[in-house]
């Protein structure tokens, strides 16, 4: 069935939209950063899904296996995961500094404080 066959892609789209929505709609900066992370993770799933071959195994040189999944996207995503972790760490570090400077991590309250500045 076409729908079930594309099951992973539906997960990707749903995750992506959840992440995107959280980034836009949440006023809490920590939640925003996590939304961003969910958004990135959905792309990881997209890459892993596209490399999957039905019945394929890991690319090991052995006579018993003929069908392999494409290993390249996995490697790419390994890199992207590192980037994602770095982004999240930096984002959260910035939120800590923002809390020290403003005493809040709610976007509205920060904007209110900034509005009073020249």
């Amino acid at each position: 069935m076409a729908f079930a066959g594309l099951y992973n892609y539906w997960i990707v789209v749903v995750l992506m939209m959840i992440g995107f929505y959280v980034v836009i709609a949440q006023g809490n900066l920590v939640k925003k950063i996590f939304g961003l992370n969910i958004f990135q993770v959905s792309v990881f799933v997209l890459y892993i899904t596209m490399s999957k071959v039905d019945g394929g195994t890991a690319p090991i040189l052995d006579d018993r296996y003929q069908v392999y999944s494409n290993p390249l996207p996995h490697v790419l995503i390994l890199t992207a995961i590192v980037v994602g972790v770095a982004t999240m760490a930096l984002g959260l570090a910035l939120v800590v500094r923002i809390r020290e400077a403003y005493g809040t991590i709610e976007e509205e309250e920060i904007e209110q404080q900034e509005g009073e500045l020249p």
């Binding site: 980034v23 982004t87 923002i98 400077a101």
Partner: peptide, 16 residues
């Protein structure tokens, strides 16, 4: 201190 919020906003938009 607005540099911090500017950096975070850039981080979010840039990562997207």
């Amino acid at each position: 201190r607005r540099a911090l919020t500017a950096a975070l906003r850039y981080l979010i938009m840039g990562t997207l």
